[in-house]
Each structure stands twice: as structure tokens, then as C-alpha cells.
Design a protein around this nucleic acid. Structure first.
Lengths: 271, 271
DNA sequence: AATCCCGTTCACTCAGATCGTCACACAAGC
DNA sequence: GCTTGTGTGACGATCTGAGTGAACGGGATT
């Protein structure tokens, strides 16, 4: 049974959503067939005929499939709207109750948190994005943001910056390219956007090396630097970031971290 | 390490959300500790110390944990808001792309769909709920709904009924108890709600047997009957439903189905 | 009525993933 | 130098799920 890419991806997605392979295949099969028997499902889904029944039972208990109790039994997938709605609700519920559980757990005391020097690293575009927004939202006096890669420009970023501006936070925005600078200026009223003079930022960018994506400095004491890690092993290029609080001498530590994290040498950019 | 219920449930939820046991335990541990080393995590999470590292790496790659690259490394969970938001977005994306894939799959022809006699069964409160709404929404002339169990009264049900009434669909609503009848009358304007005279509906209800939850008849041609299946094996009582289209003689088939599906004998209720 | 065929269920094997433990390299502190 | 403790990698044990085959039962055919 030859299988097209769409089918394979859909199966994989359903597995990510908690279904077993057979269950996923059966569901996909029933999405191609308006209705079908175990035999028909077996034929177009490559699921052993004798296991179709188990899979369907699970699918039915999840509200994704309807059963006609005739002989032979006939199965039918619920509408796509119903299916996605059901899935959404299932996961929303899970996440919601997880949230309440997390909020109910009491935090144990630990030695202390007051290290003046903290440098943390995060991975993944979404995590970095939401951390960026969070830092912007909690700014008290000043936000300095250098946008190197235009991929990081998102609606929520604009929102966060705009409300920060409305809160009378002083904004210092820089775009590394003309396009970015323009977009920033267009989207944010009453804000000055500078072209960064930091040529070394993109100057060091070569295809196989780390590329800076964003630099955010909040209240001169919290710093976040995002970068794209080159896909060393053919895997998808992940965005990484380090972020540091307490700037007494944090930048030094930060640069040290950047270097040890695989960044190319930057020769004394501050000079 | 004794473990309270909240912790166990949270771990189980995280596993349902795609994490491994170790990963889930580590994340929970980091939610109790503001920050911690591999050793500390090991001590309160029952995860072998040497495997904390793998788990944390996964968590970091999912944007749930931050790492301080000191020695020893210190780990910290992102805020609960960030975590839930990240999870939500992950699953929303999955469901969304799944939806587009499903809509892109072309439907193969099958013999025919025109069986006059269709009886389908569905399982699960959510699936039945959404099917109920769907049937109500697509009604063309008449809706008859008997609410036996008040648990099925939901906002979306009221919404659906109200818009149906606005569409000039003739509504026949019945509540099996005074409370249900009242609620229905209160929530729906310009509608008559009858007390059902069908005593056998609840008359047959004993603790260990099937209880009818709802009966819906749309346009006199589509029928849905919901019931609570007694939790035979201590599992949670699931709501089940059969629904049938094409009423030439569908009711007969339906009753046969009800009986074979495990319903108690109903002696000639129509008489 | 006996038989055959098909639908359905159950029991089983095998492979892969995960759990759990161990051995080792390395760094830091005494 | 020695000890303690962190981090990495490898290894068997265990469990889950994929895949296969036997057996049961009902309906249809002869």
C-alpha cells in the first residue's frame, strides 16, 4: 500500500497526539472512506485485519469514530470539525488541570536564590519568544532591543513593545537591516528606531556558524541574546538563547557563555 | 520518597501530554524547587541521578526548563504560565496542521451510503455532546429533546436550542425532573417545556443498570439516545449513545440495538 | 442439517523503547 | 595526591506495542 506524504504526516501527528500507530492508521483510513468495514480499513491502511477491531474500539472511546453494530460492523469517522474539537478539548482540559496542580504544589525552601550572577540558557523558538515577551512586559524603565533576524518579528512582540511604550518605558530599538528597521518604525508609533552600527553582528555570520537573532536588554540589568545554532547533524536549526540577570559584571559572564556555547570568537566588540 | 496525590496526577498528566516518566518527574521536581541541581532533583523525584541529565535535556529542548551552565549545572523550570502556554501552542499547532491534512485527503468512493437503516453508536460524554449540538444545528423543522439527566445541560446546548428557536424550528422540550424542566424553561425564551410523562424512563433506573441521559429526535427522522453505562469494572461510568437516521422503521432497529447494547428490558413502553 | 465461510476475538512472539544500574572520565576541594 | 561529587556513556532488565496465527461463533450455502 503506497502512502503519500500527507497520509504519513497525518499519522505521525496523530501519534504525537497520543494515538498508537494502528489507531492513527485506522482513523486516517476512515477519513478516506466515508464508511468502511474492518476489511476495507485493513486494505487501505496496512493494519492487520484482526487488529482493526481493537484500534477502532479505542478510537470510539475517544469519540473519534462511530460504530454501526451490524454484521459486519461498519465504522465511520466523525466529521473533521468534531474530531479536532474533541482533541482540542481533551488537551485543553489536560493542560488546565495540570496548571491547577502545578499551582497547588508548595515550593520547598532551597538554600538561596540570591546569586548575583545568573546565566541561563533556553532552547526553542517558542520558549525564547515567550521569554522575550515576558521580559518586555516586566520592564520598569528601559528596553533596548536589537532585532537581527526578521523572523523574530511577531504580533505579540509588537503588542508587548507598544504597551511598554504606553507605559512610558524608554524604548531603544535597533534593526540590523533596513527592512527590519522599517517594519519596526511602521508598527510602533512614537518610537525611535536606530540602525545598529554593530557591523560585527552580521559580519561574523557565515553559513555554517552561529547567527545572532536578537539582543534584548531590559532595565540595564536583564539581558537576553538569541542565536540560531547551525544544524550540525542535519537536524532542524534550533534557536538558542542565553539570558542573564544582574548586570554588575554579567556581560563578561555572558560573553564567556556565548563563546563556550559555540559562538565564534568576537574580537573585543566593545572597543 | 513518599508522593502525594497531586504529584502523582501531575506526573500522569504530563505523561499524557507526551513526556516520559523521568521527564515528568524532573519537571515536577523543578516546580517544587525554585532551582536545583541534578542531585537535588534526584533526591525529591526518585529519578536515578545519572538519568536526570537526559531528562532535563529533553525538557529544555521543549522550552520547559532553563539551564545554568555552571558546575554543577543548575536547572530551573520556566514559570507555570510560560509552560502551559508553550504546551497549549504545541498542541494547537499539531491539531491545526492535522486538520489541514485531513481536509486535504481525498475521499475514495465506496459502494454506497444510501442504507435506509443506519444505527451508529458513539462513546464518551464529549463526543455525544458535540453530536447533540450538531444534530440540533442542522435541524430543519422540528426538535424534540427529553433531558433525563441534568448533567447534560450545558451552555452550548442552550445556545444551540436558542438559535434553533430563532430559526423557527418547532421545539418540543421535556425534562424528566422538575429541576430540569425549570432550568430549561428559564433559559429558553418562548418555548414550551413539558414534563415528560414517561415514567418508565427513570422507573427502570437502578444503581447497577443503564440510565438514560437524553433523547433527541430531529425532524422525526434522526434519533439520538444517550445512556450512562454502569461502571462494570470499577472504571469511570461512560456515557454511551446510539443514533439513527431514517425513521421508516428505525425505532424498531433502535430498540433492538438498545437491548443488545446491554439495556434492561423495557416492556412495551409505547402501550 | 451439516458444512463452509467470514467476521471477530484471543493468545502469543518479536522488536524496540524505556527504566534502572553501573562503570568511568573529569573537575573541584581537602 | 587523594577524596568527593558531577557529568557521560554503556549495559541488561522490563515493558509496551507491532505483527501473526489459532480458535470461536454466526450466518449463508448446499
Amino acid at each position: 500500500m503506497t502512502e503519500d506524504t500527507t497520509t504519513r504526516e497525518a499519522i505521525s501527528l496523530l501519534q504525537d497526539l497520543g494515538l498508537q500507530e494502528y489507531e492513527a492508521r485506522c482513523f486516517i483510513a476512515l477519513n478516506k472512506l466515508p464508511s468502511g468495514t474492518a476489511k476495507e480499513i485493513h486494505e487501505i491502511s496496512d493494519v492487520p485485519r484482526t487488529r482493526v477491531y481493537d484500534a477502532i474500539r479505542v478510537l470510539e472511546s475517544q469519540g473519534l469514530v462511530e460504530v454501526q453494530h451490524t454484521s459486519p460492523q461498519v465504522y465511520r469517522a466523525v466529521s473533521i470539525d468534531e474530531a479536532t474539537q474533541t482533541l482540542r478539548q481533551k488537551y485543553d482540559n489536560r493542560i488546565e488541570t495540570l496548571e491547577t496542580h502545578l499551582r497547588n504544589t508548595d515550593v520547598r525552601e532551597t538554600d538561596e536564590d540570591d546569586q548575583v550572577q545568573e546565566v541561563w540558557s533556553l532552547t526553542g523558538h517558542e520558549a525564547i519568544e515567550s521569554r522575550t515577551i515576558e521580559l518586555i512586559d516586566e520592564a520598569e524603565s528601559e528596553i533596548a532591543l536589537i532585532v537581527v533576524d526578521e523572523d523574530i518579528l511577531s504580533e505579540s512582540l509588537f503588542d508587548g513593545l507598544q504597551t511598554a511604550a504606553d507605559r512610558d518605558i524608554s524604548l531603544v530599538l535597533g534593526g540590523q537591516t533596513d527592512a527590519v528597521t522599517e517594519t519596526l518604525g511602521d508598527r510602533l508609533s512614537a518610537t525611535h528606531v536606530f540602525e545598529t552600527g554593530l557591523d560585527w553582528l552580521t559580519g561574523i555570520e557565515r553559513d555554517d556558524e552561529v547567527a545572532i537573532s536578537r539582543i534584548l536588554l531590559v532595565d540595564r540589568e536583564t539581558l537576553l541574546v538569541g542565536s540560531y545554532y547551525p544544524n550540525t547533524a542535519g537536524s532542524d536549526a534550533k534557536e538558542q538563547a542565553v539570558f542573564a540577570r544582574g548586570l554588575e559584571n554579567g556581560i563578561v559572564v555572558l560573553l564567556r557563555r556565548l563563546v563556550t556555547a559555540g559562538l565564534p570568537r568576537i574580537k573585543d566588540p566593545g572597543a
